[in-house]
Design a protein around this nucleic acid. Sequence first.
DNA 1: CCATCGCGTGACAACGATGTCAATATTTCG
DNA 2: CGAAATATTGACATCGTTGTCACGCGATGG
Lengths: 338, 338
Amino acid sequence: MPADDVTVRRPTLTQVAALAGVSLKTASRALNQEPNVAPATGRRVRDAADLLGYRLNGIARELRRGATSALVGLVSGDLTNPFYSAVASGIERELRQHGLLLITANNDEDAMLERSLVDAFLERRVRALLVIPSADDHEYLAIEGNHGVPFVFLDRPPDGLAADAVLIDNVGGARSAGEHLLAAGHRRIALVADLVRMAPQQGRIDGFVGAMRAAGNNAWEPYIRTDVHDVRHAERTVRELLTLDPPPTAIFTTNNRLTTGALRGMRGLADPPALLGFDDFDLADVLGTTVVAHDMTALGREAARLAYERISGHTGPARTIVISTSIIARGSGERPPR
Amino acid sequence: MPADDVTVRRPTLTQVAALAGVSLKTASRALNQEPNVAPATGRRVRDAADLLGYRLNGIARELRRGATSALVGLVSGDLTNPFYSAVASGIERELRQHGLLLITANNDEDAMLERSLVDAFLERRVRALLVIPSADDHEYLAIEGNHGVPFVFLDRPPDGLAADAVLIDNVGGARSAGEHLLAAGHRRIALVADLVRMAPQQGRIDGFVGAMRAAGNNAWEPYIRTDVHDVRHAERTVRELLTLDPPPTAIFTTNNRLTTGALRGMRGLADPPALLGFDDFDLADVLGTTVVAHDMTALGREAARLAYERISGHTGPARTIVISTSIIARGSGERPPR
DNA sequence: CCATCGCGTGACAACGATGTCAATATTTCG
DNA sequence: CGAAATATTGACATCGTTGTCACGCGATGG
């Protein structure tokens, strides 16, 4: 009869205690650096633990200590989007300083999936929940807030619920983008925006439109294109815009995906229109693309900080932090109208 | 006296049972869709649960069911590097299909930190551990493998331990990169590589050197630069290379960071050298950068698949999957020598 | 010399769920 | 109609840890 399975059940504290010849509780004390353990006893317990390859069972500990884990959940879009991954990175770095770990899940921009992921996280008793929401309505979370699980919304404000949030100055950033292009002499400025139902997009559209209104410019109105949701669509849209007569002399794209699409759509043009994109991106410097930049890592860090404060017992009304934006001029946004 | 805290302790199954007027066990049965529960009883329990806002305590369940969670850990470098985030995304998508969640932690390329993160994950009783290792020596993990925690190494092979791994065809990819540049007529080809102690880098160097040897070319030897570890350093290195007399006519960079640095270093040159980079990246098409591409999401997906098979009980010797590479010609690698 | 104190230790309950097994209630069938 | 089968329910132990409390012992102090 062969020994067909070499995997061994993980030793428990009881077994360590038995091997060390002490009681369960004493072993617990020794391994937790609690006071009032004789040095010799402590050593004996630690030796026994090493010998057996003992590792504390965090699940049991968490249950005993109050059924709440050292995990913080993040529900966001796909991490291959550098916006989400930068935010996740900022969160993770901040949490780590407090001994917390980050669980991530991708909502695929689907409200139903988002809700079931939130459920899964809550069942795991995360200490806090950070959401870059796709869903429109977060009222169902209201009851959860009362059970002591802090929520923090990132990039998009909560709807139907008072909760902490960290947002980007979308209106201000988009307004200054509009002003920047106007100042370069543009009037026929195309606006390529993502789904208008998403609050940040709406804010960026509002800011841009506000700048146009304030300048008394309405030459841009034939060039508005909204609900452009992916890179390919953005590329097609920009190509189409450039066939118009007269064509726009500048393009403002309202997020990194759309900017990527626009760059593809403009590739190889001898005399490209000006381009200004919301969200900074890697290699924008090499490409010479002017952007409305903001600190995505800081966005994550601030959200994690708010969450940590709530975890630590802070109470009080919901807070909103706004991350400021700034224009980084790299050439594409400063090209004059042709 | 104001009610200074509205947060409520989360209801337990006992409370649900009490409200429904049934025993704890019956409530458990009802909520777990177990058979042999009278329909009326089931409804009463579910109503009580809804009323109280009951949510299962996953921690307690996991403890009872065997002290192992539905979590899989990933220890990698910073998620702001698109390589890591693409891998993480591939992992997460695959795990989700099996009801598993991903915990991520960043080792900051520090072996000590990596080890302590692995410890933290094991204490949380992750079902599997995926590592893009920074540490050189993984022998300390050997004892863990025997306790039924599967390990999968990504991008870098395990050292001192037999474990599943998913690697990239570094040697093959780099060799074909070398051949590609030779075929374009280059002889003075610079090699800009990251830390040679990291196995993938060593493989890429070996592959490149192999191609040069096979072609009997040694004109490249003055242009080898290794242990270039970040974007800024790569930028400086490329600038320095271009001041040499004679300068290299082509540059091969061995990862995405170095390629970024090279692009920065070459910015604005009227007559730039050829450039070929290992790792594909966003906007490489717009920049016209030729790369050695490989499917990073697939790398993550395959690793998650291997882990899941082990979780499901698969036993057997350690397996290694190699992700193939291909050259995507976009212009920069096809420029002839000047 | 005895009361007091602090240290080291252990017995036991508890966290919130599920598995086992036994006890009823209900149905089925000869 | 009674026996056997089945459906429904509950009491209790259990997962691995930590918190509470009590105990024995040597040292301290009046």
